[in-house]
Design a protein around this nucleic acid. Structure first.
Lengths: 217, 217
DNA sequence: TAAAATAATTAGTCTTATCTAATTTTATGA
DNA sequence: TCATAAAATTAGATAAGACTAATTATTTTA
């Protein structure tokens, strides 16, 4: 249906569009894909011709209804495969993204739906991101972070914002995963550091930046 | 590691090499991949430079030890995914090949081995072809066909030779799958047709060509 | 064995997706 | 508002992998 490149652009544009009030410029797309703005301009032309996106210098790039539909399906496949890799094949959090990045492009009429069923129709992927449903509906993403809590509050880790290897490995070191219980012991007002207790164990201190990247229930 | 195209050539050369006493010519490769001999000549040059194949006008194309190793790994991935698609996702026999054709190219260091373990280290794929082991060893392929049996003999379907959609769909219609018990009731000497009883049911007659494509235990 | 058929190869073209370098447009800030 | 910086765009190049058409080798077969 689409080339690998086209799919990657669609997905990238979709992802950038998730950030509220963010103007999707050629440069932004180039950065997110790690390539040259000149290449992006070419692809913007191509995807515009195919009516998958609309580009307005003022408003930036936007997905058309068709482009959105297709992008959501790619994201659906990506996230379902992530669940599979983690739950069924025993991969770690920080290993699954790159593999899913390849698996997501396999487009068989019923593959995603069968995989979905096989996995028990999960609502969120291992990074806590919502998995779009077969009909294109996207479950509500988590929005409360550790930094939004008050001292004494208890929560459960639902997802992470940052999905870089370094962050995920840090989480692993702290023994934090999806579902881990965390209590906010204290907020240090000086630099907004957070003193937390992970799974009821002795307190640890983490940075504000860390807290902003942990989404909780 | 390799491009999609390179992998497809390696696999195709490996497959052609499975047929005993078969000279692997540019034309044969072109036919098996459905493309132009001129393109094949280009790729032969490229793969020869990379020392994955050796080409001699007299002997045709041969895989080098390295080329063989890589080809076997691709075949391993292909067949493991076929098992997954059939057993875990509930696809039919005749649907899995094309999807596995895409999945086989995903090359993560431990993916095939994890999948292998997840599937319980199967020895044969749903078409009955042996699944190469992680160390590159290939289990012995089945070799006895329905036509090799004598009237009265009982057997179990182990694999099929032909994997075309039309044949697989015919099998489906006859309710024959891997493991199905078949009894050879009679051999018609006139045209070598076979009268068989499938899973103990009333007899059916099938052609010699059909029988030659059913491998049995 | 010579002619005809088939196969292999070369030469040149095309498409996709990328790049660099140069230019034009837009935004920013003194 | 005008100079400078940043962003967007154009032009032209490149690489991979495919193609067609033309040519050269090799087989067949009469």
């Amino acid at each position: 249906m689409y080339t690998l490149s086209e799919e990657n652009y669609l997905k990238s544009i979709y992802r950038l569009g998730q950030q509220a009030n963010f103007k999707i410029t050629p440069t932004a797309i180039a950065e997110s894909l790690g390539n040259n703005p000149a290449s992006v301009v070419d692809m913007i032309r191509k995807l515009t011709e195919k009516q998958l996106i609309a580009y307005d210098k003022k408003k930036g790039v936007e997905l058309t209804p068709q482009g959105l539909k297709d992008a959501v399906l790619i994201v659906r496949r990506h996230r379902l495969w992530e669940v599979f890799l983690l739950e069924k094949l025993g991969y770690h959090w920080d290993e699954i993204h790159d593999i899913a990045e390849e698996l997501e492009h396999i487009n068989n009429a019923t593959l995603a739906d069968r995989l979905d069923k096989f996995l028990g129709f999960p609502e969120y992927d291992p990074h806590g991101d919502p998995i779009p449903k077969a009909n294109g509906k996207v479950p509500k993403p988590y929005s409360v972070t550790l930094t939004d809590l008050k001292a004494g509050d208890d929560c459960r880790v639902a997802a992470v914002r940052d999905t870089s290897s370094s962050f995920l490995q840090y989480l692993q070191k702290l023994d934090i995963g999806i579902g881990t219980r965390i209590q906010l012991v204290e907020k240090i007002s000086f630099d907004n550091s957070l003193v937390i207790s992970i799974s009821g164990r002795a307190s640890t201190t983490v940075s504000q930046k860390f807290g902003e990247n942990i989404l909780v229930d």
